[in-house]
Amino acid sequence: MEILEYGFMQRALLASLMVGLVAPAVGIFLVQRRLSLLGDGLGHVALTGVAIGVLTSTAPVGAALVAAVLGAVLIELVRARGRTSGDVALAVLFYGGIAGGVVLLSLAPRGSATNLDAYLFGAITTTSAEDLAVFAAITLAVLAVVGLLGQRLYAVSDDEEYARAVGLPVLALNIVLAALVASTVVLSMRVVGLLLISALMIVPSAVAQLVARSFRQALYLACGIGLVVSVSGTTASYYTGTPSGGTIVLLAIAVFLVVAAAVALREATARRRHRRRGDVHAAHPHEHGPGCGHQAVPHGDHVDYDHDGHLHAPHLTGTGVHYDEHGTDAAPADRPATEGAR
């Protein structure tokens, strides 16, 4: 592969691999918490950190990390104090962050690395070996924390009020999550850019949400999708000469649209089949009930009736009794109780 002959592309692909894996692993908790745009806001805040780093000639990545983590902690404290002013406080922080970054960068002396575009939209091919070492450390740290605290983060993201009521350390866990987001933002800054970071955190999770059955499944699926779109987007950008960040995000959105369409199609088909069977039984004079002659099969919260080898679940609709088909479409392993009760 020609693409792997260049050192800068090797580093770019390694960076995109790490980002693709980490961003959805953190982003899925934001999706669950319905706080999808937190990553976007922290990206804004990180820009001020970058500018301070450039102005003081310290490493912009380190300064961005400090700024984003501080911003994240501040946001959680504002959120914890009450809701009335929280929304506005967040907006002030976010836009203050990006405005501060732009103004501070403009003050930097000529000749310093002040390419705003590189931070806003990513410049993956400028990834240095030192950057990679920092990225690897952030990746390991984030994945370790998600591995260790993932179940608690899920609990707090799923039902914060319940978590607080039973005594989970909600504020601490929220700060941990916000710090994870901040770290991910800084990690992704070079690959997708500060303005597009949120997309890589959210879109793979949105795809996983459409097809997964469990949270764990969704987490792994989101990471897998993130990894694939990140690496393939970076590869594609090499051949097309387009910016890596935009290419990756467009690819992720394309995956989302295809999966969403497929799921919608599947549901429409299932609904149509449901209606067709409903029609058959609308003309079917027999009404299932206790002692109707068909074997009653308990199924979850209701009783199905074994009707010539397929299961009928009666339910009342506005127009009369309607029969759902239960247990003919699913594989036997999928419905152990139904099969066991037969």
């Binding site: 899920y154 039902d159 978590a163 009521a165 005594g167 059955r213 469990s214 949270f215 499944q217």
Partner: peptide
Amino acid sequence: IGYVPQRHTVSGAVPATVREVVSVGRLA
């Protein structure tokens, strides 16, 4: 302390199984 909130349904945006939701009760 056990708590059953007033909501009718489980609200999370990401799918979760019965086991995953009930396991949360054990975490505290």
